[in-house]
Computed example of a mutant assay.
Amino acid sequence: MGTRKVLWGFANKFFTVGAVGLCISDRFVSVAPVRGSSMAPTLNPGKTKLLGMSTDDYVLLEKTCLNDYKFSHGDIVVFSSPSNHKERHIKRITALPGDWIGIRKSYDMLKVPEGHCWVEGDNSSSSMDSRSFGTIPLGLVQGRVTHIVWPPQRIGAIQRNTLQDN
């Protein structure tokens, strides 16, 4: 009888911690890997060797900004790809609803529609961003990057800047 009580107590605590953890990662914060070099030098500036293995940056995503879509120019966000919902991209917001954006390599101007934003990678030579697929709906944004949490030598806050600041 005692073993059953111990197992029930363990299972109860395990599921409680899991439910609380799931709620926190769904509503408040989570951790996401950064793949590729489109955000270099801010994220993944070069492959870091840790114990002889290459490692990508892992970042902390703050999700309370999604409540009212509170974003600013220069925020780095993670969003679902407009063309494939299973892909996630990480880019910097360069224009918000109502802003006018100049299209590079042409002389056209585009007004960002309400409920959308314009995103670009810091490393424009290897970035698939709004220059490829246009504005993205704010509803596809999954969170704002606030800190690098891995690898240990890169732990720290992300600085908000615009592409013109680089």
Rank of each mutant, 00 (worst) to 15 (best):
D122Q: 01
C65V: 12
G121A: 11
L110K: 12
S125F: 12
L140G: 13
W118I: 02
L138Y: 12
R104V: 08
V29P: 05
V112W: 03
V31L: 07
R35M: 09
H73C: 03
N44Y: 07
S38F: 08
I93Y: 02
W150V: 03
K47I: 15
S124P: 05
N84Q: 06
S80F: 12
L138R: 10
D99E: 06
V119S: 10
K86R: 13
F133G: 11
G102S: 13
P45S: 09
Y58Q: 03
G143K: 13
M128P: 08
R92H: 01
W100N: 15
V149Q: 01
T64V: 11
P97K: 09
D57R: 07
I93C: 04
A32C: 04
T94K: 05
G52R: 09
T146L: 04
T48V: 14
P41E: 02
V119R: 01
G134V: 07
S127W: 01
D56M: 10
G121H: 00
V59D: 04
F28H: 13
D99Y: 00
S30M: 10
T55P: 11
L60C: 13
H147M: 14
V119M: 03
P45Q: 06
F28T: 00
D26Q: 15
D56C: 12
G143D: 00
S81V: 09
P33W: 08
S72G: 14
K86Q: 11
D122I: 02
L110V: 12
S81L: 11
D99N: 10
Y69G: 11
M39K: 02
T146N: 07
V34Y: 00
